[in-house]
Design a protein around this nucleic acid. Structure first.
Lengths: 338, 338
DNA sequence: CTGAAAGCGCTTACAG
DNA sequence: CTGAAAGCGCTTACAG
C-alpha cells in the first residue's frame, strides 16, 4: 500500500479510502491510484485490515463433527453458504464442534470471525447460550425450542407436510400414513424436524376428517421395509405413505411391493424433506419434496451478513419450503372396490 | 497481552515466549504468566499474530462450486479435514472456485492462508499451475496427469479394482464385467478415476487369463438398468459385475433382477469407490468397497501441515485403499451347468 | 533467561 | 478532497 501511495503520489490514507470506497476521492486522484494498484498488482492484506478495523470478513459455520455423518443436504448447505459468502467478500471457515460447546469457546476466543452460523441446531442447544454470552452475532440453520428472538433459517416442515397431503388428497387418497425416523437409544427429547412434522401432519389429517397413522422406524432401508408391513397390518386400506426418513424411503417402497402392493398403482409413497442423494440414487424413482439445502445456505449467509452490516435490521426468520422433485412413486388412489 | 505482562510483572516479549513456547522461560516466571493468563481470560488475537509472524494457521480447501453437486464422500473429506486441522491448531476455510481458476487468484492474493488443499483435481488442472506460480504450499486430493513432483492424497483405484477382482474370483467368478460412468457431453479427456480403474481392471483380467468387458453408462439408476441388460446381451454368461458408478449401482442390481437373474445367486454386483450414502440408502444391501473420505481428508491435512512446518519433508504421495463395507449383493459363482 | 524496540500493513479519528 | 499520526496486538531479531 505504501508502494501504491508513492507511485500515485498520494498518502496511504488516500489509497485506503479508494480501496475501501470509504471517503470521497477526486476522480483524477482515484484514477492514478487505481492505475498504480494494477501496475503493482496490489492486494490488500487480510490480516492488517482485520487488525486495524476489527472486522475480519470471515464467518464460521459450526457443525457437529463426530455425532453422525453429514449427508448431501448438509454439503449443499455448506457449499452454497460459502458461495454466497464469497459473493459478498467473505470467507467461510468450518468449525467442527462437539455438541457440548466446549471447543466453541476457544474458537470464539481467537477473535477470528465476525459472525457464526450454527448447523444441526437442537431444541435445547448449549451452543446458543455460549454464543449469546460472548456477544458474537449468529444465525441458526434450524431452530431451538423458542427461536422467536433469534435469527434463523429452517426448512418449512409444516408447509412440506401440507404440500404432501395436498398432493396426495388431490390424487384421491384418504388413508395416508406418516413414517418418521426414530433416533434409537440416544433419543433426543424432541428432535425438531420430527416433532414439527408429526404435529403438522396430525393437524392436517384432523382438519380433513381423516385418520392419523404415524409409524416410527430406524433410519435404514430394512427398517423401512418393516414399517411398510406394519402400516399394512395396522391399516390394510392404506393407499399412501408420506416418509420423513430418507434412509428408510427406498425400504418402504420395497416393503409395499413385497406385501403385494404395487407402487404407485396400489400404494403411493411420497418422500419428504429428502436429500439430493436419495433422489439421485432411488430406483425406482421416488416422488419427493426435496430439502432446499442450497437455498437455506444462501439465505443463512445473507441473513447473517445483513446483521453484521447493520445490527438493527429486522430479524431473519425464514422458513424455506421444499422443492417438488419427481413423481414416479405417487399416483392416483386406486378405485375403492379392488 | 499487555495486561497479562503487567499482572505477571514481565515484558510482553516474555508473555509471547510462553504463549508460543518459543524460547526457554524460567519455571517461576512461566507459572506467574500462566496464572495471569487464566485470571484475565487471555486469548491471543489471531490477526495480530498472523500479521506479525506472517503465518495465519489457516488453510483453504478449494472445490468446484458450480460444476456438479458434491455428495457424501466430499462431505466426509471436508468434515474430517476440518477436524484434523483443528487438532493441529488450524482453521479450514472453504474456497468455491470455478475450474478456470480465475477467482483462485483473488483468494490467494488476500494472503489469508498458509496452504491450500485442492479437491476434485482434473488430469490437467489449471488451478495447479496458478498455485505453483504463486508459491503457495498445496496438496492435491486426487492427482493430475503427472503428479510425481506433487504432494497428493488419492483413492487407490488400482488396489480397489484388484481387491474387487480378488473378492469375486475367490468366489469362483470367471466372467466379470466392469461398469464405469460416462460423463455425457462434457466428457473430460480422461477423468482420472475412470481411466485408472479401467486400466487396472484390464491388466488384472489379462493376468488372470479372463475376458475383459467394460460398459460405460450415465450416472443414474435408469442407465444402470440398461447397462445390466447390455452386459447380458453381450456376454450372457456373465456372473459378476464391478460397478464404479455410484448412482447407477442400484440400477444394475434392478436390471439384473428384471432380466431374470437373482442377485447374488445368479449374478454378483460389487460396487466400488462407493460413497457412504450409497450404502446407507441401498435396498437391497450392496456389497461395496467404500470410498475412504474420512481417511483422505485427514491424511491430506496432515500432509499439508507437515510441509508447512518443514518445507523439506519428503513428499506426501499417499493412495488410500477403499474399505470393505457389506456383502449382500455378492456371493459364490453359480454352478457351471445351470 | 528476560526486555526494549521495531515493525507487520492496514484503518481511522483528527486536522486542514 | 487529502495527509500526518496513532494504534490495532502481536512476533522477532538484537542486546544484555
Amino acid at each position: 500500500m505504501r508502494d501504491v501511495a508513492q507511485r500515485a503520489g498520494v498518502s496511504i490514507s488516500t489509497v485506503s479510502f479508494v480501496v475501501n470506497d470509504t471517503k470521497p476521492v477526486a476522480p483524477a486522484t482515484r484514477a492514478r491510484i487505481e492505475a498504480a494498484m494494477i501496475e503493482l498488482g496490489y492486494r490488500r492484506n487480510a490480516f492488517a485490515r482485520a487488525l486495524a478495523s476489527s472486522r475480519s470478513s470471515i464467518v464460521a459455520i459450526a457443525f457437529p463433527a463426530l455425532e453422525h455423518r453429514l449427508g448431501a443436504t448438509a454439503m449443499s448447505i455448506v457449499t452454497s453458504a460459502s458461495v454466497a459468502a464469497a459473493e459478498r467478500g467473505f470467507n467461510l471457515v468450518m468449525w467442527p464442534v462437539s455438541n457440548d460447546a466446549s471447543q466453541l469457546e476457544d474458537y470464539i476466543g481467537s477473535g477470528l470471525v465476525d459472525g457464526l452460523l450454527l448447523m444441526e441446531v437442537q431444541q435445547k442447544d448449549p451452543r446458543v447460550a455460549l454464543v449469546e454470552e460472548r456477544g458474537l452475532p449468529y444465525l441458526l440453520i434450524g431452530r431451538t425450542e423458542d427461536s422467536s428472538q433469534q435469527d434463523y433459517v429452517d426448512m418449512d416442515f409444516e408447509r412440506t407436510v401440507t404440500d404432501a397431503m395436498d398432493h396426495l388428497t388431490g390424487l384421491g387418497h384418504r388413508e395416508i400414513a406418516l413414517v418418521v425416523g426414530s433416533l434409537g437409544d440416544n433419543t433426543l427429547p424432541g428432535y425438531g424436524p420430527i416433532v414439527r412434522t408429526e404435529a403438522a401432519y396430525r393437524r392436517r389429517v384432523a382438519s380433513l376428517g381423516l385418520r392419523d397413522h404415524v409409524v416410527a422406524c430406524e433410519q435404514t432401508p430394512v427398517a423401512g421395509r418393516d414399517a411398510a408391513r406394519r402400516i399394512l397390518d395396522e391399516v390394510p386400506s392404506t393407499t399412501a405413505v408420506i416418509v420423513l426418513n430418507d434412509d428408510a424411503a427406498s425400504g418402504v417402497v420395497r416393503g409395499m411391493e413385497r406385501a403385494g402392493r404395487a407402487v404407485p398403482d396400489d400404494v403411493s409413497v411420497f418422500s419428504v424433506a429428502t436429500s439430493p442423494d436419495v433422489v439421485a440414487l432411488a430406483d425406482p424413482t421416488l416422488s419427493a419434496l426435496m430439502a432446499p439445502g442450497r437455498e437455506m445456505g444462501r439465505r443463512a449467509v445473507d441473513g447473517l451478513l445483513d446483521r453484521l452490516e447493520n445490527p438493527t435490521v429486522p430479524r431473519t426468520q425464514v422458513l424455506v419450503p421444499c422443492e417438488l422433485a419427481l413423481a414416479g412413486s405417487t399416483g392416483p388412489a386406486p378405485a375403492p372396490n379392488r
